[in-house]
Amino acid sequence: MQPDRHEISVSVNGTAYRRNVESRMLLSDFLRHELLLAGTHVGCEQGVCGACTILLDGAPIRSCLMLAVQANGHELSTIEGLASDSGELSPVQKAMHEHHGLQCGYCTPGILMTMTAFLKQNPSPSEEEVREALSGNLCRCTGYQHIVDAMMAAAQAMRASAP
């Protein structure tokens, strides 16, 4: 059987890409190995660990549970697009650095994407709400405490700088 291939157009972090992909290619593999945006990590390929979380039209999703071909016509955001063009870290990235919210850093991309979307939706979360929002992202290194601290601090920083 000839591979079933499709032409797709996607926008990732504001850049438009056109590619021809095999229908079975996972979106996570497409981002990492076709577009060479390897900042999105893969931990389980069954939607549990959360490392591959990206934003699809602004909403966090598991990129291992979507086919690349399904992303046709959609806007994606990944960790590579979080810092400003001049390299300034986003408030969530900055807070993770300041609070030692990462160790090996492998789960970090998924956490940044999940929490960036969450804090936009809920700018004044309680610690419990932060923990709930984080619960779909597994981290094996940190015990989560410093991540939670980072998110509380990021929320505060974002509130303080909001117009």
Partner: peptide, 11 residues
């Protein structure tokens, strides 16, 4: 853990 081949159709 990659899917086996299939034909994809967007209805």
């Amino acid at each position: 853990m990659k899917p086996a081949p299939f034909k994809y159709v967007a209805a």
